[in-house]
Design a binder for these strands. Structure first.
Length: 272
DNA sequence: CAATCAACCTGGGTGC
DNA sequence: TGCACCCAGGTTGATT
């Protein structure tokens, strides 16, 4: 999916484009993706005005003036696009929120794994978000990171991507952070010494920051709220670079292995 | 408790 | 062209 940098880029776009607009109607050909049900959501959000757009972990939240919240998870291939009414239909467009001022918020999703969920209020939202670990750039301090790393014997890459331990990190940024920190993705997390843990913490924040700076990675499906591609894919360190020369200049090649069932890219020479 | 795997669905790429 | 097969930014739930 969209990982933290992609979801954050979408959030910023949505914040600029849809705050202050009213939701008029919802149209869908994929009602399963609208929860708890299309009827309930239609009833709850119809006529409500959008007040703000937040992000926590990989979840976007659209706050409405009636106290309810629309939460979205884009999973692997979800897009949230703001278009003018009448603009050409978007690829894989499945849920359309008709807005005031002739706009539409379109939820497109090739694989239909993503969802839009109605949240009744602040308490329910907090309950949903409580299952996520600390947020990079916020409450994920270096000290907290070190504790998380020390408390698991699972492969470090799995721990980085475990949303209950740390929020927002997916496959791309986990691979690149581990390369930047020169840590082998298969290492048991608790085997990292304090110096390695600190290096990985810095590397993680660095690659996430780059992701945001380049407005996300448009490997295949990701687009921002305006339908624009990001550019981080042009700056991948090792992600997707199987067989290519190590970007660290060690004369080795990037290798693809499987860790926890996910394709994992790393340099066996540089990453110890 | 941890590891593994299937499932949710669809599309793109590759090789025969 | 067709078809089989593999891979995919995520997460959940069942099984071992």
């Amino acid at each position: 999916m969209p990982e933290l940098p992609e979801v954050e880029t979408i959030r910023r776009g949505l914040s600029d484009l849809i705050v202050g607009r009213k939701i008029l109607e919802i149209l869908t050909d994929s009602p399963k993706q609208v929860q708890p049900s299309l009827e309930v959501v239609k009833e709850a959000v119809g006529g409500a005005t959008i007040e703000k757009v937040n992000r926590r972990a990989k979840i976007l939240q659209i706050f409405l003036d009636n106290g309810q919240i629309l939460a979205f998870h884009l999973k692997l291939t979800g897009r949230l696009l703001v278009r003018k009414q009448g603009a050409p239909k978007d690829e894989w467009q499945h849920v359309v929120f008709r807005l005031s001022d002739g706009l539409e918020l379109r939820f497109a999703d090739a694989r239909k794994f993503g969802w839009a969920k109605l949240i009744g209020g602040q308490a329910e939202l907090e309950k949903l978000l409580a299952e996520f670990g600390p947020e990079p750039f916020d409450d994920l301090t270096q000290e907290k990171f070190r504790q998380i790393v020390q408390s698991s014997s699972r492969p470090i890459k799995i721990v980085l991507m475990d949303q209950q331990k740390i929020s927002g990190v997916g496959n791309i940024y986990a691979c690149d952070a581990l390369f930047l920190a020169k840590v082998d993705p298969r290492r048991p997390a608790k085997s990292l010494n304090p110096e390695e843990a600190e290096r990985l913490y810095q590397a993680l924040e660095e690659v996430l920051q780059r992701g945001i700076k380049y407005r996300g990675a448009s490997d295949q499906y990701y687009l921002d709220a305006r339908g624009q591609k990001g550019a981080y894919q042009e700056h991948f360190l090792v992600y997707g670079k199987n067989g290519q020369p190590c970007p660290g200049g060690c004369k080795g090649k990037v290798k693809r292995i499987v860790v926890g069932g996910r394709g994992t890219f790393f340099c066996p020479t540089c990453q110890k």
